[in-house]
Design a protein around this nucleic acid. Structure first.
Lengths: 127, 127
DNA sequence: CTGATAGTTAGTCGCATGCCTAACCAAAGC
DNA sequence: GCTTTGGTTAGGCATGCGACTAACTATCAG
């Protein structure tokens, strides 16, 4: 099967990884990891015009890495870890493939499918 | 601290995430997860001119996601999971931050540093 | 040596990205 | 109601990316 027109999940990964490939956007994610924040609050640490930062936020939102909502004149941004998980999952999958441990991966995939909310310490085996 | 001129690790993450943001490159990584392959072997599944694919390989190599070596007229490519781990580590860090579980993260980071080869089932908590 | 095979280099092209300024709403604050 | 304050829209500009063709190099097979 040569390169067909891209499954939906693949496009999602495209967007997520692309979003994470920018240091500003990763910094924003780091900040949001500590809790929600307004746009101007997020903008403060950066020597960057507002519209530029806004664009970064758009990229993050379109990739579903964050969710935003406007209340009054303030837009509040919040991290949405699902997309992050998708990326992490893909990475873990490659690692597992590489280590020839498809058995465990399948079990993991199954557990993912069940949408179970149990969350455990994740651990990427190092090198 | 505002956006200083980019630490080396950050630039590495830029490159890795950017490399992974392309479906062709991810497909290549998936293929290499199953074992090393030559350039033309990698090219086969894609309806793409060689130079284009070559460029993808260059991106992957510069991001250190793969390593390549030429023997005779054949260049063989191999996955190099360290960069993948770096990306996975960053993601896990954000998750952990979000979940307010820095304690465990520190333990994980320390274990990473020790370069230990013990590998365990990784598990991203879903949702 | 000749030709096929495997990869490389150079140069082009169109579109996306990331940044900016300037102008513009729209809720608060007073 | 007038002015901040917080965000948004529009438009412009340089650079980078992903793809292509064409032409070239280098090894291996016979």
């Amino acid at each position: 099967m040569p390169n067909q027109s891209q499954s939906a999940t693949n496009q999602a990964l495209d967007r997520v990884f692309h979003a994470l490939s920018d240091p500003t956007r990763r910094a924003i994610m780091s900040r949001l990891g500590q809790g929600p924040a307004s746009v101007s609050e997020l903008a403060k640490p950066f020597a960057m015009a507002m519209p530029s930062l806004l664009q970064h936020l758009q990229v993050l939102e379109e990739s579903r890495l964050i969710r935003t909502a406007k209340v009054g004149r303030v837009r509040t941004c919040e991290m949405q870890p699902v997309a992050l998980d998708a990326a992490g999952h893909w990475i873990a999958e490659q690692r597992a493939l590489w280590e020839g441990r498809l058995d465990r991966m399948e079990a993991y995939a199954k557990s993912l499918h069940k949408q179970e909310k149990k969350r455990d310490t994740k651990r990427f085996g190092k090198r």
